[in-house]
Amino acid sequence: MEAENENKVHIRSEALQLFMQYGTRSVSMDDIAAAVGSSKKTIYQYYTDKDHLVAEAIEVALIENCTQCKKFHRLSENAIQEGFLAIDQTSELFRNMNPVLMNDLKKYHPKAYKRFVEYKSEFIYDIIVNNIKRGIEEGLYREDLNIDIIAQFRVGSIDILFMPEFYGRVKEGLFRVQLEIFYFFLYGMATPKGQKLIEKYKKHKPKNSSDAKD
């Protein structure tokens, strides 16, 4: 398979960083061209318009997240460690993420937003279900959990982060909010054995396996 054009990748990467920081509505093609160090004409050689660029940037971000989630599952020693590895990556993502991004996608880029919703309700849901089943088998999560309800609720909690009526009233940024939600769910599912592991990983976070070799 032929490698993707480096200029196209660079444009998409710089654009994604701007979208994450400011949302999509506030970022113009001129802004992207300035960040890339090229002309708008060059950008239009690879992307027909901003909507096209947004859609591809979001798609690639989701693909990368999918790859990391599968890697965390494969390399983690247990379900709780898998969760900590995943939340560590998500925390880094959220450190510089403007919550208006999701609302901009919903209003101005329906294709990209639909893709995110599908990814969240299908892949992320499955990841959570498998993690819960794994944790139960390992004796780290309670056996009486209704897996579907918990997984659906956990997926739904992602939407709360991007509700203006929520993030507008919370002083902490997305980074801290999603971490507290993660702990809330984890402690709610954990057995005494699992709670000990949670405390262990909170004090000594496991190394992010995204830097580890396959």
Rank of each mutant, 00 (worst) to 15 (best):
K205P: 12
N131H: 07
R12S: 09
D211G: 14
P206R: 04
K8P: 05
M20R: 15
D49Y: 10
K107E: 13
F184M: 12
K120M: 11
E82P: 00
C69R: 08
E2I: 13
A79C: 03
T90Y: 14
E14G: 09
F116E: 02
E143V: 08
Y167W: 12
H204R: 12
N130W: 01
K106W: 05
I160E: 10
D211P: 03
K133N: 06
N146C: 07
I58E: 08
K196V: 11
H73M: 10
N96A: 14
F116P: 01
A61C: 12
F116V: 04
G156N: 07
F184R: 09
F166I: 13
E118R: 07
T48H: 13
E6L: 15
Y108V: 08
K200H: 06
N65K: 10
E199M: 10
A151Q: 04
S13H: 14
S76P: 01
F153K: 15
H109K: 02
Y141L: 00
A190L: 04
G188K: 05
P164V: 05
S210Q: 13
F185G: 09
F123H: 02
I58K: 04
N208F: 13
H10A: 15
E143N: 05
Y183A: 05
E199G: 06
D49F: 08
Y167P: 01
A151G: 00
D104G: 04
L16H: 06
N5I: 04
L85K: 00
K50V: 06
H204I: 11
E137Y: 08
F182C: 02
M163D: 10
K205A: 15
S76M: 04
Q195H: 12
R25C: 14
S26Y: 13
E118F: 03
Q21N: 11
E56K: 11
V54P: 03
M102G: 03
I128W: 06
K207N: 10
D104E: 02
D159A: 11
P99Q: 05
K70N: 09
Q152N: 13
Q195R: 15
I198C: 03
Y47A: 01
F72K: 08
Q45T: 09
K41F: 10
D31N: 15
S121A: 07
R169H: 12
L101Y: 03
N131F: 06
H73I: 03
A15H: 08
A112F: 04
K111F: 14
I127K: 11
F166C: 10
D30V: 13
L145P: 01
D51W: 07
D51V: 10
K70E: 12
